[in-house]
Write a protein that binds this DNA or RNA. Structure first.
Lengths: 152, 152
DNA sequence: CATAACCTTTGAGTTAACTTTAAGGTCAAG
DNA sequence: CTTGACCTTAAAGTTAACTCAAAGGTTATG
């Protein structure tokens, strides 16, 4: 199988596959006499595995250290441990996101709960001091990045 | 107040404050005769506001479009709308993270539920086909980025 | 045999949010 | 008058995970 065919089957670009090879995630692959890379059918599996792991939150670095040279020979204990750590990491993230959500919802309520007898500027001051007073001690949530993925 | 003092009070670096100014988040600031920037006390508030918004998941771009030229004159409707959109965004993220967590936990169980009568390689094949069969149709979670923040 | 559709490599560009570096001016203390 | 702690600017570096561009070889088709 050529690289284009593999890319189509695995649902990613050829350049990405070459990049993964350079990055050490794919073992160096066989070449045809003309220099073209040639892949065995299992390569599709490996690529699917990599993208699954990425979607589960593993960086390419993490994936590289976990991926065995062949698909049948995993470092069992390291893998399980990494999986557990990732679950814990996700749980931390979930907590922070929930915190953030709560704070935003509270902020919306606070903004909309403008007392009838004050003007907008005064309401702004009220909301501002409310917000910066409260959220400050208990650390923030650092939400943003997850939504900002896949630039283009 | 000089920039160093402001940085200390707001808990960030001077270079970051200058960066925010270049990025259009801070209105151009007064200068002393020697060229030093000089800040009014409210500048601390503005910076705290920016970092709060960041922690809630707003990008600097979003913050810039929402921040009013002066702290008392918010574009009320746009702000509320943006807050609601961010809450929705966070909720989407929460769902995907929960999905991811569930899949990882299931994967761990599956790995550990190795039938007594097969060897490691066979178990690897079993787990692999289980995993790539299941998660594929219902899209993945794209977790990773939120944990990878603030590089150094 | 020309054209399109492949493939190759190297190197640079992208994005966000900063930091770091280099080169230099200012100012208070000793 | 020198040392150190400030401040200034512009430009380049950082990180992850790719993509894109340039320049060129290969192969199938009309």
């Amino acid at each position: 199988m050529n690289i284009g065919e593999l890319a189509r089957r695995a649902g990613l670009t050829s350049s990405r596959i070459r990049f993964y090879e350079r990055a050490g995630l794919l073992k160096t692959v066989g070449r045809q006499p003309n220099g073209y890379r040639t892949y065995p059918p299992e390569a599709v599996l490996v690529l699917e595995l990599i993208t699954s792991a990425q979607q589960a939150g593993f960086s390419l670095d993490e994936i590289r250290t976990l991926l065995p040279p062949d698909l049948e020979n995993w470092r069992h204990d390291a893998l399980i441990e990494a999986l557990r750590r990732k679950v814990a990491e996700i749980e931390g993230l979930l907590l922070r996101l929930q915190q953030s959500r709560k704070q935003l919802v509270a902020l919306i309520s606070d903004i909309e709960a403008k007392p009838d007898d004050i003007d907008c500027a005064a309401n702004a001051r009220r909301v501002l001091t409310n917000m910066l007073g409260k959220g400050a001690e208990a650390g923030g949530a650092a939400v943003g990045a997850a939504a900002r993925r896949r630039p283009a």
